[in-house]
Design a protein around this nucleic acid. Sequence first.
DNA 1: CGATAGAATGAAAACGTTTTTCAAGAAATT
DNA 2: AATTTCTTGAAAAACGTTTTCATTCTATCG
Lengths: 332, 332
Amino acid sequence: MTVTIYDVAREANVSMATVSRVVNGNPNVKPTTRKKVLDVIERLEYRPNAVARGLASKKTTTVGVIIPDISNVFYAELARGIEDIATMYRYNIILSNSDQREEKELQLLDNMYGKQVDGIVMMSDQVSEELQNKMSHSPVPIVLAGTLDEMKEIASVNIDYLQAAYEAVKHLIANGHRRIAYISGPFSSTINKKFKFEGYKKALEEEGIALDEDLVIATEDSYDSGLEDFETLSQLADPPTAFFAGSDELAIGIIHGAQDLGKSVPEDYEVISFENSKLARMVRPQLTSVVLPLYDIGAVSMRLLTKYMNKENVEDGQVILPYRMIERNSTK
Amino acid sequence: MTVTIYDVAREANVSMATVSRVVNGNPNVKPTTRKKVLDVIERLEYRPNAVARGLASKKTTTVGVIIPDISNVFYAELARGIEDIATMYRYNIILSNSDQREEKELQLLDNMYGKQVDGIVMMSDQVSEELQNKMSHSPVPIVLAGTLDEMKEIASVNIDYLQAAYEAVKHLIANGHRRIAYISGPFSSTINKKFKFEGYKKALEEEGIALDEDLVIATEDSYDSGLEDFETLSQLADPPTAFFAGSDELAIGIIHGAQDLGKSVPEDYEVISFENSKLARMVRPQLTSVVLPLYDIGAVSMRLLTKYMNKENVEDGQVILPYRMIERNSTK
DNA sequence: CGATAGAATGAAAACGTTTTTCAAGAAATT
DNA sequence: AATTTCTTGAAAAACGTTTTCATTCTATCG
């Protein structure tokens, strides 16, 4: 039924070794032989069996991607960056959603090992010790994309979240605000809790503004949370006049929350976001935001992974990409 | 280095046949033996090599997913539905982006065949004859998700787009409109050109409203297109008073286009969308929309595929899912 | 012209399972 | 105690490649 390398060998009057050489671009084949084999391959529509190949060569040209939730734009953008570079280097991707559940992450790693992937790109909010430990003993290279490994044992690609948050808040302060809220995604995420929050605190501190715990809210990373959080904060005796939002959805929620109460942005409140997805331009006012280069983080992670898979020498596994801020109309 | 089935057999004092039976849940194994083997498996951290298994059994428990663009929310939602059901049935997913380029779709199919996937879920705007032909001769089952196969030769999961569009436009007419624009995504998509457009025409016709080509615009499926299209149409001598938008992004573009000109929705213009993504609630006014059950389409497609892969009997490969309309504030 | 270094090719083992077949020992049933 | 039904093992084939090593060509050199 299916045509094998053996069929090709027979038809072309050569050994399977020679067919294998032709298929794999081994230069030690006489041009005339190569052509003869290639012709037969085309005639028979021979397609090498990647599974057999994987067994024999111990390479599957497949990488595993563990992602919290592909239906979340944030991660989908990362995934696209990963996939594009993977394709460029002829790898396929096995994609699995973890929903941030550690137990599932662990299990997915085992599953990927079983499938004999050549490497793994992993995204997660939080790298527990157990996870970190398991990854350290991985049989194949792993790169963390947009995910922090505090021990810095696993290769990873990120931006300087602390500095970016710091700059954003500084911007708000420069615009005259003293009551600045930090509406964050869940603090179970190391990036939110440790890095962005630290940047926020650093900026306040530098200006001699005392941290007011009432102005810091860590919730789900969603539009509705933004809406609610605005409402909560606007009822404070001394409400904030500016918001540093952890994501675009949160920022939009805040803006609509304000608008629903008859207030306007940026006149009554200024808002700055941290993400700059496609959404940032799809609101009125459009969002001023720190731009997180999601696609690039994915792409660079995959590129880094190819280096490890090729056993190339990598000088520094902890890659920090540049970021920038883009000013639109949610700030003055 | 790696522990094989052979190691387990030796340690457990049984034959590899027995280990294989245990691993594959064959019932003909005495409980005590099963336990003994399981213990050794755990102790040795034996993990069956899926590649070897795939070669021997000719099943890889992997399915291919060909998607236009995973970073597009629309498809990401579909993908999530596919993945969830795949996981439920213990399949992994190899995901590849086609960018709607037929040449790439063809090539990806070959690639997936080479990887010996057990089945394929495919999404595309348009199924050309060549593609349709290639799929008909596929060595493994294929299901189209949210994708129309006009020949109805390939299994597929969809909603009744024509009827849904018809209803949406009827709704606008019922609200008193006679000048109703259809702002569509690209007409290269069969669904847009043939189905939604037909539904639009049918509704108009039924009410004796002549089709005005000026009111039909097929552009890119983006926010910016919506913005532009609104501008274009508002400059008409006899501009539309209502819009039937092919997607949420388009609808939001239209609304913002109107608002940027000092008009308001739904007072000056009514808008109805066709998608109901998360975005639909993230605008003011919130979108009235036909709700496309993207996640379900993905999930049902994958479920259908499992049936084909199990060689179960499928009564009808052309599945039509129900849809509904949700009224929010972009219509009165 | 014979020797010799490469280049080109082939033969066979290896990769880690599943699957099959047959035989035989163990356990359960009557 | 006889018979039936379960369990298990041993061995080997199969899956379709890659890879190693040996061998055969071919061309070049002195």
